[in-house]
Structure formats: C-alpha cells, structure tokens
C-alpha cells in the first residue's frame, strides 16, 4: 500500500520529486535565483550558478566583496553576506544537477 501511494505521489508531483529537501542553504540561496536563473539552458546576461564549483562561486563572492573584482551589481550585493553565508550558497548551487 505504501509503495503504491508513493508511486502515485511521484507520478502526480513530478516537479516536486526533483526538488531538494527544505534546508537553510536552499532558503538562503533563494534570494540569488531571482536574478541567477536555475535554468542552465537559458540564454541570460546574468549567469546561472547551477552546477558551478563551490570554490569558484565562493572566490567570486569574496573578490566582489573585497573590491578585488569589479562589477555593475555584485560588489554591492556581495558586501551584504558573511563568509559563512557565502559558503552555504556556494555549496548549495554546486550541489544542483546542471543536466
């Protein structure tokens, strides 16, 4: 009975079955995806962060925050995040499947 209802649930909610469980990193990263689309295939002037390595996301954020790297927007945004928050965001996006 349980197996049947589970199958039924996943058939009906295919979108839901692909989502990560509720966690604080996913919530924190929600602010990013209003600009950085999750759709890796989309053509966008703002790059998707899905599947990028956590090291490169973290180093970009740190460089934007310190002023080492220039940009139109991200230097202003990155300064609002702690290193711990940046690490959580970087790990979250790198954990997403880019395919």
């Amino acid at each position: 009975m349980k197996l049947i209802s589970l199958l039924l649930f996943f058939q009906i909610n295919t979108g839901l079955s692909q989502s990560a469980p509720i966690d604080s990193a996913q919530f924190l990263s929600g602010a990013c995806i209003s600009c950085h689309t999750l759709d890796k295939a989309a053509t966008s002037a703002i790059p998707s962060l899905v599947g990028r390595s956590s090291e490169s996301i973290l180093s970009d954020m740190l460089d934007y925050a310190s002023g080492k790297r220039a940009g139109l927007l991200m230097p202003q945004i990155a300064k609002g995040y702690s290193r711990e928050q940046m690490e959580a965001i970087a790990n979250y996006f790198s954990s997403l499947d880019p395919s």
Partner: peptide
C-alpha cells in the same frame, strides 16, 4: 539593459 531583461526572465521563471 540586458541585466534588467535577465532579471525579469529569472524572477518570472522563479
């Protein structure tokens, strides 16, 4: 200008 368009596309997708 393209950043504004990218923002709209991303937030509507979200």
């Amino acid at each position: 200008a393209p950043l504004a368009v990218a923002w709209a596309d991303a937030i509507w997708a979200d």
